[in-house]
C-alpha cells in the first residue's frame, strides 16, 4: 500500500480571475512506505504547492490526493503527518520543550506523557539541555532541530518538509542532513522533502522528483541508491554522477 497516492491532481489559484495562475498541471505520484522523496525544481515549479496538496493545507482543483489510503483532508484531520517549514516557525512565547509539546497538547496527551516525550525528542535532536530555553535564545540551526523534533513528536508515519534547511549555512546544513537521515533510519518514517539544492536532494533521497515550471509538472524521476548513507558519500564518485544526472535533468527543465 502506498503512503501517498496522487492521481491527476491539478491546482489553479484564483480561477476565473485576472490573476489566475495555473500552479500544477496533472500530477501523478505515488510514494511507498519508508521512501525519502525530494521534490526539486526552479522557483515557481509548484513543489511547495504539491507538498501543501499532500498536507491538505490546500485542495486540488481537480484530481485526487490520498494519504494512508484515505482522502488527504481526512489524513490531516487524523494527524497522519508531521510538517516542518523553511522558517522554524517556533512560538517565541513557549519554551523549547513546550514548543515540542504543542501538537501533543492538541492531541490530548497528558502533561506527564508530553513532558516525557518532549525530553526524548530533545535527546534525539541533541538539544537535551535547552528544554527550558526560549527559541530566541537558540541559533538558527538549533531552532530548526526543534522544529523537526516537534514534527516528529507524535511519531507520524509521514514527514512533510518544505525547504527546512534553506536558511542555514552550508556547514550547519550538512550536519542537519546527517541528523535527518539518522532520525529517518531510526524512526522508519516516510519523508517528502522540498529543496532547491541538488546535492541535498541526492544526498538525502531514495528518489528525486524533478519538476518543471509554468505550469508545475513532473519532468523526470531519478532513483538514487548510494548504499549506506554517511558523510563520506559526499566524496564518492557515484554521488557526483547522480548530482550531474539531476543537474542535467534540471537544465532541460529550465530551457
Amino acid at each position: 500500500m502506498n503512503v501517498i497516492e496522487i492521481r491527476g491532481a491539478t491546482k489553479v489559484f484564483n480561477p476565473g480571475k485576472g490573476n489566475q495562475v495555473e500552479a500544477l498541471a496533472e500530477i501523478d505520484l505515488a510514494v511507498r512506505p519508508g521512501e525519502f522523496v525530494t521534490l526539486i525544481g526552479p522557483s515557481g515549479c509548484g513543489k511547495s504547492t504539491l507538498l501543501r496538496l499532500i498536507a491538505a493545507l490546500i485542495a486540488p482543483s481537480t484530481g485526487s490526493v490520498e494519504v494512508n489510503a484515505k482522502p488527504a483532508e481526512q489524513a490531516r484531520l487524523d494527524r497522519d503527518y508531521g510538517m516542518a517549514f523553511q522558517t522554524a516557525g517556533l512560538f517565541d512565547w513557549r519554551t523549547v520543550s513546550k514548543n515540542i509539546e504543542l501538537p501533543l497538547e492538541l492531541m490530548g496527551w497528558t502533561k506527564g506523557d508530553r513532558r516525557r516525550r518532549a525530553k526524548e525528542m530533545l535527546e534525539l535532536v541533541k538539544l537535551g539541555e535547552f528544554a527550558t530555553h526560549h527559541p530566541s535564545e537558540l541559533s538558527g540551526g538549533m531552532q530548526q532541530r526543534v522544529a523537526i523534533a516537534r514534527a516528529l513528536s507524535f511519531s507520524p508515519a509521514l514527514l512533510l518538509m518544505d525547504e527546512p534547511f534553506g536558511a542555514l549555512d552550508e556547514m550547519t546544513r550538512e550536519h542537519m542532513q546527517d541528523e535527518l537521515l539518522r532520525i529517518w533510519k531510526e524512526t522508519e518514517t516516510t519523508v517528502v522533502f522540498v529543496t532547491h539544492s541538488i546535492p541535498e536532494a541526492v544526498y538525502l533521497s531514495t528518489r528525486v522528483v524533478v519538476m518543471s515550471p509554468r505550469p508545475g509538472n513532473i519532468a523526470s524521476v531519478i532513483e538514487v541508491d548510494l548504499g549506506q548513507r554517511q558523510a563520506s558519500v559526499r566524496d564518492d564518485p557515484a554521488f557526483h554522477t547522480k548530482v550531474t544526472e539531476v543537474r542535467v535533468a534540471l537544465r532541460k527543465v529550465e530551457e
Partner: peptide
C-alpha cells in the same frame, strides 16, 4: 499552516 496541519 502548522496549526492547520494539526487540525487545530
Amino acid at each position: 499552516e502548522l496549526m492547520e496541519s494539526y487540525a487545530a
